[in-house]
């Protein structure tokens, strides 16, 4: 039985519409990726795209293998650029927020 990590993932700033119009999702993802490496943000993004996102417009969330420019990622309320971006290794009960800056003002 593979280990899993439980996380809270939030989508705001208009992104919630891509994820069943639901802002907060409690999810559990595998603790290791396919290569046996500890799951990181890159893996989470791929996982969200494949498993959580029902909307077919994947390009509104992910472009060229990373989060679309203009979407902010907060890891436990800190800018993901301060935490290692895609390489950040997920810890149990982490809170990951995706905020779009692309929607109207």
């Amino acid at each position: 039985m593979a280990e899993s990590i439980s996380l809270v993932v939030e989508f705001t700033g208009g992104l919630e519409m891509l994820f069943s119009d639901q802002r907060k999702h409690r999810i559990a993802i595998p603790a290791k990726d396919a290569k046996g490496q500890p799951s990181n943000i890159a893996f989470l993004i791929q996982y969200l795209c494949e498993s959580l996102m029902k909307d077919p417009r994947k390009e509104m969330f992910v472009l060229d293998g990373s989060v679309r420019p203009g979407i902010l990622v907060l890891i436990n309320d800190a800018d993901w650029e301060l935490e290692g971006q895609e390489q950040y290794e997920l810890q149990p009960n982490d809170n990951i927020v995706f905020v779009s800056t692309l929607h109207g003002g």
Partner: peptide, 10 residues
């Protein structure tokens, strides 16, 4: 920056 406006709101 738009980023900071969004973060301020957050």
């Amino acid at each position: 920056y738009e980023k900071e406006i969004v973060l301020y709101a957050h």
